[in-house]
Design a binder for these strands. Structure first.
Lengths: 193, 193
DNA sequence: GTCTATAATTCGATAGAC
DNA sequence: GTCTATCGAATTATAGAC
């Protein structure tokens, strides 16, 4: 049953995501979050106990990956990259997680879980050997999180300048290889004109 | 001319790199850095003015990339990846930069400069069109910084478990393609068995 | 050069009136 | 549920004795 305070709670979480994403865990103050939500700081404590609890609630995140089980194997990389690029711009949660992960172990745990539970199965479905799924999901993480880091946190100009189609064209073959390539196959494919 | 206090300054910088790398900019306190350097906290202030100045001094970083001008074009990715993997384990500076970049704009500037000034020329030398060098260096940054993030900061188990040879085998073709591939060439090369 | 003492902030968290 | 007032802790930074 919806509580009367649900609107307030939602406003707090939205403000928290915004501040955590923009400033990181340490610099985002409860006072600033409360101000942005136009609410009293003590309400935040009342609802979420402490700053860590607030972050945990704000950093709830699902990739909502589509079912790639029926996708043509050759298009898995492309579809996964497309979904990632789209998902990041829906809200600030992943950027907040990324920024907070530097000092908050709970943020790291969340990111770990996302790739293990949400990307892992995709890797298990498409890897030559399902036992390699964790390693392949990890490699996907290095590229996708690295892209998000450079684009949204570090704001490296050449990376920010890429539009989504360009970014997808560069990243999709990488992800495709991490998910499906046999070790050392195609290791030098890129060299051929 | 070397000052008498140079040994002290070096000890402070080494301790600073260690604490910044382990805890990030906010959580690494001047007190803790001074304690690790076995020196009085006020000395740190005396030498470096403030925490920001200390960080700037500690985050001086050079990749020391070898000259890849004479390298076989097909091996540029492999060599660059090998050098990166080796360089990270020499000291904590890059990890410190990565951790601090979340809240310190000066750390971001440093990272930007590293890729623009140190990786950019490699890209300019080997890209089909030198005008694309910044974009290609940026793509290299997404993968190499993403790998460092997952391995040293987030410590994702499957990524930590890779030994250097395995990591290089996976990453080298990616970097090779970002540096040298014509757009859309080899986009589906990884699909072939 | 080195250390003590402390100023000046800032923030998370709590107590309690209404 | 909401707000005021404030505590207590931690930190950067400074002033000044030795």
């Amino acid at each position: 049953m919806p509580r009367r305070s649900d609107a307030t709670r939602a406003a707090i979480l939205a403000a928290a995501r915004e501040r955590f994403a923009a400033d990181g865990f340490e610099r985002a103050t409860i006072r600033a979050i409360a101000a942005e939500a136009r609410i009293d700081p003590s309400m935040v404590m009342r609802y979420y106990g402490n700053k860590e609890g607030l972050f945990a609630a704000a950093a709830e995140f699902h990739l909502h990956l589509p079912d790639l089980g029926e996708a043509p194997p050759a298009e898995v990389g492309e579809r996964l990259v497309g979904h990632f690029l789209h998902r990041w711009e829906q809200d600030d949660t992943l950027v907040a997680l990324l920024r907070a992960a530097v000092t908050q172990e709970s943020a790291v745990d969340r990111i770990r879980a996302i790739f293990a539970e949400q990307v892992g199965p995709v890797a298990a479905r498409h890897a030559p050997d399902p036992a390699e799924a964790p390693a392949r999901a990890g490699l996907v993480a290095t590229q996708m999180l690295g892209f998000a880091l450079c684009r949204y946190v570090l704001r490296l100009q050449p990376v920010v300048a890429l539009d989504k189609a360009e970014a997808a064209a560069w990243l999709a073959p990488t992800i495709q290889r991490y998910l499906t390539a046999t070790v050392n196959s195609d290791a030098s494919a890129a060299d051929r004109p």
